[in-house]
Simulated scan of single mutants.
Amino acid sequence: MSSETPADAPRTLTSTLLTALLALVFGFLGAAVWSYSGLADNRTRSFLLDNPDMLPQMAQAYEEQEAGKRLAQMGDAVFDPFPGVVLGNPNGKRVLVEFTDYNCPYCEASLKDVNRLVAEDPDLKVVIREWPIFEGSDVASRMALAAGLQGKYRAFHDAMFATNDVAAAAKAAGLDMARAERDAVSEAVSTEIARNLDHARALGFTGTPAWIAGKKPFGGAVGYEKLKAALTAASEAG
């Protein structure tokens, strides 16, 4: 059994991608440099050592390209929200999907970016996929989905990140607790959590937050500007 934590997984994948990209770069770029400039592989190495930021950028671009291919094969199920688990306009034509975990500090940091996007765009629909990958997150995710069934997801979602306390967030959201406790352990909620895990694995996501803007999947706390740009590009692409 692997001892790798959710935080370790992205580093492991990135390391693997960087190794593969190094091989490709030295193979193809080295050949190109030799052919067109008459230079040997040591010049290629020098170029890469002088521009090390190229490799992480290439790894990220490759990872996002592969995720996009997998998304194209999945159909539209990942865009269909669990009842009530939507931020912004439930009927909005511009769609952002977020995979999130309440014990993920990067998800908490991204909350302000998502709320800003929602405030700026009345036609934005944010589909939240509860993906409890950290220890202790399952209870919070289940209560969040139960809140969605009562039409109070946004209130619980914001309160949970603010308090990191399920009971306090449920109280702040004004949940009917008897109903919420039943719904939290229901088959529908269990199925949703399992489905979100399947979606995340299918897309190659290794941690939270992870996103889909239009038809482009990508991971990480990328910030407001990248999220905005991805949504704009998706709208322009139709």
Rank of each mutant, 00 (worst) to 15 (best):
220 G>E: 02
183 D>A: 02
215 K>G: 01
123 D>F: 09
90 P>N: 10
77 A>Y: 01
99 F>D: 02
22 L>G: 14
151 G>N: 10
182 R>Y: 04
140 A>D: 05
171 K>E: 11
202 A>C: 07
59 A>R: 07
144 A>C: 05
118 V>F: 13
208 T>L: 11
104 C>E: 01
200 A>P: 01
96 L>Q: 04
70 R>N: 02
23 A>K: 12
127 V>R: 11
44 T>F: 15
62 Y>A: 06
145 L>S: 01
89 N>S: 10
229 A>E: 13
10 P>I: 00
169 A>P: 12
174 G>M: 06
155 A>Y: 03
139 V>P: 02
201 R>G: 05
94 R>W: 00
194 A>H: 00
178 A>R: 15
141 S>H: 04
16 T>I: 12
2 S>C: 01
138 D>L: 09
176 D>V: 03
224 Y>Q: 02
45 R>P: 00
120 E>V: 02
109 A>R: 14
197 L>W: 04
176 D>E: 06
124 L>Q: 14
70 R>E: 00
65 Q>I: 00
170 A>N: 07
186 S>Q: 08
207 G>Q: 09
112 K>V: 08
35 S>V: 10
40 A>M: 14
150 Q>E: 01
54 M>Q: 12
3 S>F: 00
49 L>H: 15
97 V>N: 08
133 I>W: 06
91 N>W: 06
218 F>S: 04
58 M>V: 00
53 D>V: 09
79 F>M: 07
172 A>L: 05
195 R>H: 05
22 L>M: 07
138 D>K: 11
7 A>C: 03
39 L>G: 13
140 A>Q: 10
75 G>N: 05
182 R>N: 07
156 F>D: 03
2 S>M: 08
169 A>L: 11
113 D>S: 12
179 R>H: 11
81 P>M: 04
145 L>P: 01
165 D>M: 08
220 G>D: 02
23 A>R: 14
222 V>M: 10
179 R>A: 12
52 P>Y: 11
101 D>F: 01
59 A>Y: 05
156 F>G: 00
36 Y>E: 15
192 E>L: 04
111 L>V: 13
161 F>Y: 15
14 T>I: 14
140 A>F: 07
200 A>Q: 07
64 E>G: 04
102 Y>A: 05
56 P>K: 13
183 D>F: 03
223 G>R: 12
212 I>M: 08
88 G>P: 08
188 A>H: 08
43 R>K: 14
54 M>S: 11
47 F>V: 09
31 A>V: 05
211 W>L: 04
198 D>R: 08
198 D>L: 04
129 R>L: 03
189 V>N: 12
153 Y>L: 07
76 D>S: 08
205 F>I: 01
71 L>I: 03
39 L>T: 13
62 Y>F: 07
192 E>I: 01
198 D>F: 00
63 E>W: 13
105 P>T: 05
103 N>I: 00
98 E>Q: 14
26 F>H: 11
200 A>V: 01
217 P>M: 08
55 L>Y: 08
182 R>C: 00
88 G>S: 10
